[in-house]
Each structure stands twice: as C-alpha cells, then as structure tokens.
Amino acid sequence: MKKWMPYLLVSPYLLHFSVFVAFPVVFSVVLTFHSWNIISPMKYVGLANYRHLIHDRLFWQAVWNTVRFLIVHIPLQILVALTLAELLNRTVRGASFFRAAFFLPVIVSGVVVTILWQQLLSYNSGILNRLLTTVGMARVAWLDDPAVAMYSIAVMATWKNVGLYIILFLVGLQSVPVQLYEAADLEGATNWQKFRYITLPMINPTIFTVVVLSTIGGFSLFVEPYIMTEGGPMNTTLSAVMYIYRQAFQYYHMGYSATLGFCFALIILFVVIIQRRYVEQEV
C-alpha cells in the first residue's frame, strides 16, 4: 500500500469538511460582525448585531416559542411513545402491523404531514372542529388563536415523530434483563413499582436520546410553521429557523441572520449539555 493511500481515501471528507463545515463556521463568525445585504460590500459593524439581538423582541419570541413547543412536545412524546412501546413489548398479535402503522408518519415528508394537518385543523371546515361541534363543544381556532397555535404544531410534530421513539423505547425495553423482573416478582412488587424502579432507570439513556433529538428538532422547526402559519398569529409560531430564513431572504440581513444562527446554535449546545448533566446525575 502506498503511503499516500489513506490520505487519498479521506480526501473527499477533508474537502467536504473544509468547504461545507470549516469555512461556514469561520465565515459565520465573521459575518456576525458585519452588515451585509449580499449585493453591497460588507460593512464592519463591530458588536452591533449582537447588541441588536439582545433587544430584538422577535429573537426572544422565537426562543420562547421553541420553549413552549418543547414543554408540550417532549413530555407528550415520551408519554405516548413509552406507553405504546410498553404495550407492544408484551406479547401482542399483529405487533409488526402496529409497529408499521405507528412508523408511517415518520417516513413521510414533513410537507405532506403539514398539508394534511392544516386541513384537519382548519377552523371553518376542518375535521377536528366538525368532531367538536357534533359532540356539542365549541370550535377551536387551532391555528389562528395565538394562545393555541404553537401547541397544535407541537401535537402535530409528536404525531409525526412518535413512531421513531416507539422503536427506540422498544429496543431499550427489550434490553432490560428479564431476571430483574423475575426477582421483583418474587418480592411481590406491583407493576407500577417494577416500572418505576426497574424499567425507568434502565431506559434512562433512551429518554435522554428522545429529549436531545426533540430539542434539536424544536430548534429546527421550519416547514410546519412555514406552511401552516407563516410564523403567526402574533408571531407565536415563529421558529428559530423561520426567523433566520426571514431575516436572510426577506430582508437580506445576512450578517444579522448569521448572528441569529450562531446564537441559536449556542443555545442548543447549552441546553443539550445541561440535559446531559442532569441525566448523568439521575443515573
């Protein structure tokens, strides 16, 4: 083997890394100190972008929206996924059918899911409101009420992703040694005690994975609000990526948009590190 062979083999990686990772990271940092609308020359503005960001109501609104999304999305995701995984983990006829059904929304494009849910949630003619009015309840403006819209999206996102987490939990549940349950049975433990003191600690890493992936997902939310609400009503569904997109491609504030991207990324890293700490303490 020639000496340069390994380098030749990894060269696609190095090239790709320098063009699409290293350069953007460096350039992104540089951009955050500039004002630039792409067509005029870049202008150095020092920390102005960061100062603006601190006072930018919409930046904080986007952060707050993501928090509100995650507060509903994460617990719901874990609850539904764990329940269904628990049910599937017992001997079930047609388990593979159920698994396949739960997984269906996962493989379909978010665009499809969003268009579908937009119809289900429509105020005047959506199926959900039809159901509500048939049982004598009032209509809900699922996507037009500022107090509700983000939670509607959170539920929809849960519906879309939960199949994946069911599978992850199934893998986790199946890795719990049967002997542990048998020992617990001997001691007369209830089902709840078994779940609380054996299952839960054993699948803690899976829960962590779900939390991290959902958090990253929350900060990456784009197609859903873009199609359904365009960030409204009252900016209550403006997501981080939507705001970056809007600043870049509606106002051509490339420098500020990069600053937003940079700060959102820092927030994500920070949140994930905190989550990891917390999980490590639990275990």
Binding site: Y13, F23, S28, V241
Partner: peptide
Amino acid sequence: KNIIFYLIIFTMTLPFQITLIPNYITMV
C-alpha cells in the same frame, strides 16, 4: 486519523443553523 474522527463527531453535533447562511453564500 484521530483528528479526523473528532472532526466528524464535531460536525455531527454542530447545529445546521450555523452553516445555513454561509453555505447559501458559497452556492451563490
């Protein structure tokens, strides 16, 4: 070799929000 391995891990943890705008500019 190890450096490359760590770079890959780094890339995977890097949120795409950082690279989105610069990558667009590269394309342009």
